[in-house]
Structure formats: C-alpha cells, structure tokens
Computed example of a mutant assay.
Amino acid sequence: MNETVTLNAVDTPIGRLLVAATETGVAWVGFKDTPGARARATKRIGLPVVEDPERTATVVEKINAYFKGETLTFEAPIDWRLTTDVQRQVLTTLYEQIPYGKVVTYGDLGELSGTGVHAQAIGQVMGSNPIPIIVPCHRVVASNGLGGYSGGNGVEMKRWLLTLEGSIPATLDWNPDEGPQAP
C-alpha cells in the first residue's frame, strides 16, 4: 500500500490549526487552515491526501485537551519525515525531555541534544519545526528573554502559550479562551 496523508483541522483559542498525519504519525501542524495552507502542507509532505478522520482523531482530541489544560503531554506518534537528522535529534530531545510548564534555553537545548549545535542554529531548528505545539518549540527561550517565534503572530503567540502552561505569569488582560491579539 502506498503511503498517504490525512488532513484535519481543530478549532483552538489561537485559531484553527491544520493537522496532517501519515500512517507513521503526525507530520505537520500549521497555524492556519486555509486552502493555501493545505496545499503547502500537502506539497511539502509529498504524499497523496486521503480522507481518514480516525488517523487524526487522537491528535485532535489531545490538542483540544491541551488547550483546556486537561493534558500535559501529547505522547503522539511523530512522523519526522520533514526534518534532517540534526533537526530530528534536537526536536526529539525537546519533545521527550522538556515537559509542560518548563522552558529551556537555545544553548542548553543544543547541549542537551548532544548535537553540539550552537544557540543560533537551535533557533533555526525551532523556526523550521513542522510540528509546533506538539513538539513544543515555544518552550525554547533565549538566555536573556523569550527569544523569537515564527508561529502564529510571532512572539505574542509564544508568550500566550507559555502563559497557558504557567511558565510565565499571566498579565491582567490574559484570557485562556482567547488567543493572543495581534499587536
């Protein structure tokens, strides 16, 4: 049987997320579910699309539970096909060793992953993470602050996710039912 990918969407406080899963596991999470985003994900993954809601059901359920504060880990099978060996090593370390509510600096993640990759390159790996939220690149911060974030509306998305997880204190206007507002 040829490999295929299934696309699904999940409504969250940060918007409608696009989830793509192969027979192996989750291969893609996108911050937008639009026809263009679906076309880009499908092209990047390079597999024919099939309707198979059961394939993404568990991941969608876990994403919903995450945003409700009901799950602290995803424990979802991951399809790393969109990563290089070094990216996979760094992202696997992040996925397996940095739990909900914790953060790690870019430099410390480079050391922890055993790759010897310096902080700036770790930032590039985080920016190319094809499975944000589930592989929590938002938990990687600079040694002197939040650092950057390429998902959603940028660093405000990172701040919102870290606030949701309790890694940073909420401001008076923070609302867990509403995602970050564009600046």
Rank of each mutant, 00 (worst) to 15 (best):
E23C: 01
K32R: 13
I63T: 04
E23F: 00
N144L: 06
L72A: 03
V86Y: 09
I134L: 01
L161C: 00
V5T: 15
V103D: 00
E96H: 07
V10C: 10
L18H: 05
T71V: 13
V19K: 01
M157C: 13
A170S: 14
V19H: 01
G46N: 14
A39E: 15
V135W: 02
A119W: 08
G46K: 14
H138G: 01
T93Y: 09
G107Q: 14
E3R: 12
A39H: 12
D177Q: 15
P77D: 10
R44I: 07
E23H: 06
G101M: 00
T115L: 10
W160G: 06
T171H: 10
L146M: 13
I14L: 08
A20P: 08
K102S: 12
G25H: 11
V135D: 01
T42Y: 02
G166T: 03
A41H: 05
C137Y: 02
T58L: 08
T93K: 14
T42G: 01
N8C: 09
A119V: 04
M157I: 01
G30E: 04
G36P: 01
S113F: 09
A37D: 05
A27N: 06
T115A: 12
F67Y: 14
D52Y: 09
T56V: 15
N64A: 10
P53D: 12
Q97R: 14
G148H: 13
I98P: 09
L109W: 07
W28C: 05
S128N: 15
D85G: 04
S128F: 03
E51T: 07
V60Y: 02
N64M: 10
P132A: 03
Q181D: 09
Q97S: 15
V86W: 08
P176G: 09
I133P: 06
P130A: 04
G114V: 05
T115R: 13
I14T: 12
P132E: 02
A142I: 00
L91G: 07
W174S: 09
Q124A: 11
R38G: 07
T4G: 00
P13T: 06
N2E: 15
T83F: 01
P13L: 03
G116Q: 11
K32I: 02
H138F: 13
D85N: 08
T115S: 14
V5Q: 14
V90D: 10
T71F: 02
K68H: 13
V19C: 04
V125S: 05
H138P: 02
G36S: 11
V103I: 14
L7C: 08
T105E: 07
P13F: 05
K43E: 15
G30V: 04
G46M: 13
V59E: 04
V104M: 09
D11Y: 01
V155W: 08
E70K: 10
I98V: 15
